[in-house]
Amino acid sequence: MAKYLLRRLIQLVVVAFIISVLVFLLVHLLPGDPAAQILGANDTAHNRAVLNKQLGLNLPLWHQYIFWLKGVLHGNLGQSYLNHTPVTQVISTGWPIDLELIIISQVIAFAVAIPLALITSRRPNRPVDNISTTATFGMLALPPFVIAPIMVAVFAVGLHWFPATGYIPFTQNPATNLHDMILPSLAITAGSIAVYYRLFRSDLISTLQEDFVTMARSKGLSPRWIMWRHAFRPSSFSLLAAAGVNIGALIAGTFIVEFLFAIPGLGYSLVQAVNQRDYLVVQGITLVVAVAYVVIQFLIDFLFTVVDPRVTRE
């Protein structure tokens, strides 16, 4: 167990290192003098000198990287050249919003997908099953930028159930915050429901055909007990893996809904920064999101060791 996690931890560090190198090199994708590009209209000789010093741009490349990495590890990602806010501050106000969106959507997705799969997998190809399977197949073709506008048109503009834009922090008014988050969360939930349902259903169906389920039946256990205590766990491995893979799609989804509903999360800040050529903000958010993504994958690997005893003991 410890050995397995250690190995994964080393992998995590290596990948994080490679990510940091690539993100660092982004600045050098800019044509011409990076400092001039980054400063844009605010360009003065003094500013440029400050930035060159801050980024260490006059040093050799690998030296620059060490310099930059040191800053990053000390929590210094540079500052926005528009309003001089530190990038870390942009990130620290943004990430809780993304997390909230992702958590709400995932809770809903699992709460819908798992019970539905438990019901339909017991009797495959009945009407309920056929309807769910067809509906989720359709939902696979509804990425957030397609379904969110439809939802806004129907529930915000048409029915006035929810505001079309706007954001009130959770700390300020939890009830309003949650109410306003419903529509954005639902918009990124559709894909997750479809993926989780389809995967869990087909895995349950194959698990229920396993010998050990027949064995459990031959012990006289009730169908419900067999479903929960014998079939559920062995069927959940791909579900867990899918949840990990799905984080990528969710990040894209939060960017879409933050942009659409003007919710000031990381995605909103990122898109604004790109449009305003605020390069250090783009670089900082990219680094943080990419590393967070890798860490989440690591956590999911850890969950695997909890769910499947074979992972670490074999």
Binding site: L26, L29, F255, V274, V289
Partner: peptide, 15 residues
């Protein structure tokens, strides 16, 4: 290991 959307946005932004 990269989330594709973030990588693509970053590259688009700089390139």
């Amino acid at each position: 290991a990269f989330p594709a959307i973030v990588a693509v946005i970053a590259i688009v932004a700089f390139w």
